[in-house]
Computed example of a mutant assay.
Amino acid sequence: MNKEINVELLFEKYTNNSIDDEELFQLHSFFQTGNNEEQLNTLLQAYFASEVTSDIPEEKSAEVADLAWIEIQQNIGLRKPTLMGRISWITKVAAAVLIFLSLSVYFILKNDSAGKLASKDYITDIQPGTNRASLISSKGTVYQLNGEKQEIITENGIVHYKDGTLVENEESDQNLTLTTPKGGQYCVTLSDGTKVWLNAASSLSYPATFSGKERRVELLGEAYFEVHHNASQPFIVSTRGQQIRVLGTSFNVNAYNDDNKTVTTLVNGRVQLSRDGNDEAPQLHPGEQSVLAGAGFEIAEVDASLFIAWKDGQFRFKATPLTEVMRQVERWYNLDIDYTGIPTDIQIHASISRDKKLSTVLHALEKITDLKFEIKGRSVKLMR
């Protein structure tokens, strides 16, 4: 990045809507570097020095309200305005950061220099993932689930959709496995009322009916849990090398085999973690994240909303390594990505809807990173 770039001038041009495509790219690229985040905060604080958010140019505000502000209020859970319409300074700055990043991606896609749809830059295009899953009984019976119904409920040993339509019509106490392919996701309510959202290329094994002193499930891949409280029967999630003990909590677990780590993000409540064959048992508090990658648990405070956005149909990245971004894209679009040559030091800041075609997502990443990807069938690689 050119160190002589006049960031203050570019930011001023951005806020008064006089910035062109090249300048917007320079400004956005500058803030891809984590060391420049403090300068971004300073610019934002100066710009949002008033008590209202209406300083955003009207033409921008109208175009991206659904993309940024409503998303912040409803999906992220930031504090909403009081009846007087006043917003706390912390909320305002956090919203400003996300609006800035969302605007960047929005205008990158909207102001394509050729004035064409992103998909025309590629020979082929791929639709985003959908609600797809299979339910496998311990007897080996496989049920292909109805994607339009989106969720199954296990009740009194019987599995049915939310509308009451039966999936498995034979009451049993057997174990079940819900599995999603690449490009699929699904939701299940367990017999105790716990709700689980399963991300792409994942599986959840659970009993049709919980019995005994604990409620135990096994996860491979990624899932978001809203655990029904029952202090007398703790809920336990087993993943590769880790167990999570829960009383009544909302949290996300990412435990894909190809990531070589287990990431647990707590939204609310309390969980206790343990490793197989080890007495270490740290507890997580809301807004904390644990990463287990061999040596032990590493715990840090995070913005939990970033790690559960997939459940609400969003890719949300903040200083996320490009390779990690590509792994998420690979699973959701059912791809085979060749990681050869993809830089490991590029960090992505962006908010992109998961209902976009693959070409749209890659187009945004290309504009952000100055890289170029090639799609052939379901294979994606970096163009030299």
Score class of each variant (00 low, 15 high):
residue 244 I to E: 13
residue 245 R to M: 08
residue 245 R to Q: 14
residue 246 V to W: 07
residue 246 V to S: 08
residue 246 V to T: 10
residue 246 V to R: 05
residue 246 V to M: 02
residue 247 L to S: 07
residue 247 L to P: 00
residue 248 G to V: 02
residue 248 G to M: 13
residue 248 G to L: 06
residue 248 G to P: 08
residue 248 G to R: 09
residue 249 T to Q: 08
residue 250 S to A: 11
residue 250 S to M: 11
residue 250 S to L: 03
residue 250 S to Y: 05
residue 250 S to G: 02
residue 250 S to V: 08
residue 250 S to K: 12
residue 251 F to Y: 12
residue 251 F to G: 04
residue 251 F to Q: 11
residue 251 F to M: 09
residue 251 F to E: 14
residue 252 N to R: 07
residue 252 N to M: 04
residue 252 N to L: 09
residue 252 N to C: 07
residue 252 N to S: 13
residue 252 N to Y: 09
residue 253 V to I: 12
residue 253 V to Q: 03
residue 253 V to D: 00
residue 254 N to V: 04
residue 254 N to E: 05
residue 255 A to G: 10
residue 255 A to E: 06
residue 255 A to D: 10
residue 255 A to N: 10
residue 255 A to P: 03
residue 256 Y to S: 12
residue 256 Y to L: 08
residue 256 Y to F: 12
residue 256 Y to Q: 07
residue 257 N to D: 12
residue 258 D to T: 01
residue 258 D to E: 13
residue 258 D to P: 01
residue 259 D to W: 04
residue 259 D to M: 05
residue 260 N to V: 11
residue 260 N to F: 03
residue 260 N to K: 12
residue 260 N to T: 05
residue 261 K to C: 07
residue 261 K to D: 09
residue 261 K to I: 08
residue 262 T to M: 01
residue 262 T to A: 11
residue 262 T to G: 07
residue 263 V to P: 00
residue 263 V to Y: 01
residue 264 T to I: 15
residue 264 T to C: 07
residue 267 V to D: 05
residue 267 V to C: 00
residue 268 N to C: 02
residue 268 N to D: 14
residue 268 N to E: 15
residue 269 G to T: 04
residue 269 G to W: 07
residue 269 G to Y: 11
residue 270 R to L: 15
residue 270 R to I: 03
residue 270 R to D: 04
residue 270 R to F: 11
residue 271 V to D: 14
residue 271 V to K: 09
residue 271 V to P: 05
residue 271 V to Q: 11
residue 271 V to S: 03
residue 272 Q to S: 14
residue 272 Q to H: 01
residue 273 L to C: 05
residue 274 S to D: 03
residue 274 S to H: 03
residue 276 D to T: 12
residue 276 D to K: 08
residue 276 D to C: 04
residue 276 D to M: 01
